[in-house]
Write a protein that binds this DNA or RNA. Structure first.
Lengths: 189, 189
DNA sequence: ATCGTAAACTAACAAGCGTTAGTTAAATTT
DNA sequence: AAATTTAACTAACGCTTGTTAGTTTACGAT
């Protein structure tokens, strides 16, 4: 199940290219060239192009599902849980900005595992929405449309992969706490 | 300069497909089929595939540039200006969710007009950042890292094209005001 | 009625695509 | 030392790609 080192190198090289041009615009010859080999040699390590994308996306989606499952069942305040979700996103995105690009932009090119991915995404959003609703009930969050709140926060977190590489100087924990401030309290003084 | 009606139909059909699968995964035959014609017939109306993408992206980018130029030079408060930017995004995205997908995800496939697009984007972000810095100086906004504030707000606004079609019942002006509340004041009570 | 134009068509192209088959050379195991 | 395995290679496949050339059809203007 766990990929061999060489397979991981292929996946890593592919991730970089997928982020630059998107899955469809990257050819097997592009990936091979990035590794200094011929395209046919890739098939000693992977089944096909789709398997590369599937691995990138599903393993990230499962990281998020595992993370939010832990957070959901803690007995912290809703504010605390939201901060932990923000930290979760910052950590995962910091470790793999390239993969996050595919998770966000290339998921529709999955075939065998598309349903699996969509289920994971719905589960994640449901858990997130539930934490927001809980926070409203417990009077920790404003009583606004939960979907708009979810949309707003999640849009920011999903875009992290774009911004993190532009701010390599910034420590992930600093980014997470600044982001918590902005998302929870807004930018208005 | 302004496209003929038939050309606009082609661009519109292409936009829908580009949103679904991304520019690279959409073929000229796909676009033709959506219009009930053959691929070769498209070339009676357009120069090539790239021209379609260029039109979609550049005309949207110029809408944003024109919008923010007007807002920048008004003598409103910074809070007021930010609300106007939010309204600008909601309006443009509501009118053309398909095109917004290309603006966000397919710009790297521009060739002739890539530099032009990048210049427009930098100009837009600079104007936006300037409004935020002004708001900090005038004590209307928190004194946090302006880039994080810009990133957070802009990420939400740039993702609108995904969420608007899921919430067709919601009026654009209601969405804009709810969004202003969340982005300015946060979700924390 | 004829002309000119607009917009569709068929047919075909060269290039690039993902992938397979079969081979070779080096490293590891027996 | 021999046998096996690993990971690269060359060559080629059938298919799809964007695009061009040349043709046909319908229609409004002369």
């Amino acid at each position: 199940m766990s990929p061999t080192p060489r397979k991981l190198e292929i996946i890593t090289a592919a991730s970089t290219l997928f982020k630059e041009k998107g899955y469809s615009a990257v050819t097997m010859r592009d990936i091979a060239k990035a590794l200094g080999i011929k395209a046919a040699s890739l098939y000693n390590h992977i089944k096909n192009k789709e398997e590369i994308l599937t691995f990138i996306i599903i393993s990230l989606a499962e990281e998020f599902i595992k993370g939010i499952a832990l957070i959901k069942n803690r007995d912290s305040s809703s504010v605390e849980k939201l901060k932990q979700i923000i930290t979760l996103h910052v950590e995962i995105a910091s470790n793999n900005t390239n993969g996050m690009a595919s998770l966000n932009n290339d998921w529709m090119h999955l075939k065998d595992e598309l349903d699996h991915y969509l289920n994971l995404r719905v589960d994640y959003e449901d858990s997130f929405r539930e934490i927001i609703k809980e926070g409203i009930e417990k009077n920790e969050f404003k009583n606004l449309n939960p979907d708009i709140m979810l949309f707003s926060v999640l849009s920011t977190l999903r875009s992290l992969y774009i911004w993190i590489p532009l701010k390599e100087d910034m420590d992930p924990s600093v980014l997470a706490s600044n982001l918590s401030e902005v998302l929870l309290k807004g930018i208005n003084k």
